[in-house]
Structures are given as C-alpha cells and as structure tokens.
Design a protein around this nucleic acid. Structure first.
Lengths: 147, 147
DNA sequence: TATTGTTATACTCTATAACTATA
DNA sequence: TATAGTTATAGAGTATAACAATA
C-alpha cells in the first residue's frame, strides 16, 4: 500500500491537469485560426526573441522535440516564408533558423488575441493577490531542477 | 495597441504552461512504460470508477475526443483485453465500454508509481500552505464555465 | 570520434464524413 | 428525423536510425 494523495493533493493535481489542458486547448484552437500549431507558434516566438536566430539542435532542445521533428517543422515554416535557414559563419555544419519579417508579422498579428484569450481564461480567473503565489508555486514546479 | 500582460501575469501564464507541460511529459513517459498513452490511461481510469461502464458518446465527451477517435482507442484497448464492449439493455444502438479485471489490474499496477511521480514533481514542490490556494486558483481556471 | 543536421521510414493518433441501425 | 456507433480515409506530427559533412 502506497501513501495515497490526500484530497487537497489530488485536487491540486487534477486542477493543474485540467487547467493546463483547458488553456492548451483554447490556445491551440485560436492558433489554428492563424494557421499555426502550438509547436510552430513556439518556434516562431522563440526565434522572434533572438535576431541572430538559433541553431537547430539548440532550438530542438528548447522546444523539446527531436532533431528530425524540428527539421520537419522548419520545412513547413520555411515553405510558408515564415523562417529562413542561414548558414552559421562559425560552424560549417550548423544551420541557424531565423524568423522572417512575414513570420514576425504573423506572431504580431496573433499576439493580441492570444493575450486577450490568456487574460480571459487564466489571469482574470485568479484573484490579483493570488497571482504572485500562483506564479511562485508553478515556477517551483517548472524549475529546471525538476526532472 | 492592446493591453499587454504585465510581468506577473505573463509569469503566471508561462509558469502554468511550463508546469503543465512538464507534468504531462513525465506522466506520459511513465505511462508509456506501462504500455499506455495518456488517453488510454484516462479512459481506463474513467471506466474504473463506473462499474456499469460508459456509453461511447458519453465517454468521448468526457475524454474530449471525437467518436471516431474513441472507437480507435477502444479497439486498441479491447485487443489487449483491457476493456470490453457490452450491449446496453435499454438501447439497441448503444454500446457500453466496461473495464475488465486485466484493465483494472493495469491501472492498479500503474497507480502507485504514478502517485509517487505526481508527488515528486508537483506536490512536494509546492509549500504545504500554498497547496490550498493553488488548488482554489486552478479550480477557477478549470471551472466548467471557463470559457 | 563526436556533433550538426537531413533524409527516409514507420507509426500513432486524430478528425471528418459517409454509413448502418435503432430511437 | 435524430442519435449511437463504426468504418474508411486522409492528414499531421513524431521518433528513430542511417547517413553525410564538419569539428
């Protein structure tokens, strides 16, 4: 017999899963309206923050996807003119992925509604004074040391 | 120009996404070790709580999956002897899905490690006094009225 | 030898629409 | 007519392993 989770613990677990699933679901649905999957949005958002782009391996690790999987997504995005492959001047093997103006425009176009949605389904549901506690707790859960 | 999210709000959002993703990832990985996907585990867990089983449409709604998708999963589970289709005595059209002893055994076998994992990656990371606040906040996010 | 990235492959999962049968 | 469920189909996405080129 193992230590079972008590009611509060189980409640936290299921609430986290439900909340995470719900936010993910509505966000994914909205992004689909912009022709982007979550992974694609994540890739574009990551690249938008880094003018010089990111190497494929680096990016794959950040997005938590395999190398082959990222190559597939990079092709999809490149075919739509949202990203570009540029050679790395310091490493002949490496290819850096860089967001194009069109890619940045798409992120910029998707962002306002995205923000509105996040506010509606998440921020506005949590009391102002609880936001800080919530973030601190979830940060500990999401900490890099958490395997 | 939209109202941008402030630092705390953005922090909550990203922390929720990261925490949710992390918990989902490690849980999925562990369940794979038991030969179950998350959807399959959810199906078995739902059925384990209902001796008389659930109708396909009912179950599809609960798991948030299409009818066709559930039929596929039901076949997978049935082929492994984890669930059974039983006719509904009250409706000739309907088929109820019922968990078998083997299915219940599998859930029971997976549960202890599952609980341990949830405790390790989630419960133990959140201060005891914050668990209640966390649950309350996430419950509001996950409320049926949302969105 | 190790690493970067692509390719080829195979597989899992999903939604959709058409369909059958019963309500 | 409407609903329960299955089937057929097609598509998206993923990981894996083999590979080529460079470090």
């Amino acid at each position: 017999m193992v230590d079972l989770l008590n009611a509060t613990e189980l409640g936290v677990y299921f609430a986290l899963r439900r909340a995470g699933d719900l936010v993910q679901r509505v966000v994914a649905e909205q992004l689909r309206g912009h022709g982007l999957s979550e992974v694609q949005f994540t890739v574009l958002a990551q690249l938008s923050a880094v003018p010089q782009g990111l190497g494929m391996s680096e990016l794959a690790a950040a997005v938590v996807i395999s190398k082959g999987g990222l190559t597939y997504q990079a092709k999809q995005l490149e075919a739509r003119g949202l990203v570009e492959r540029v050679p790395d001047p310091d490493d002949e093997r490496a290819a850096r992925l860089v967001v194009t103006d069109a890619g940045r425009d798409l992120v910029d176009a998707a962002l306002p509604a995205h923000v509105e949605l996040v506010r509606a389904v998440l921020i506005d549901r949590v009391g102002q004074q609880d936001l800080e506690i919530l973030r601190a707790s979830l940060d500990r859960v999401a900490a890099p040391s958490n395997p």
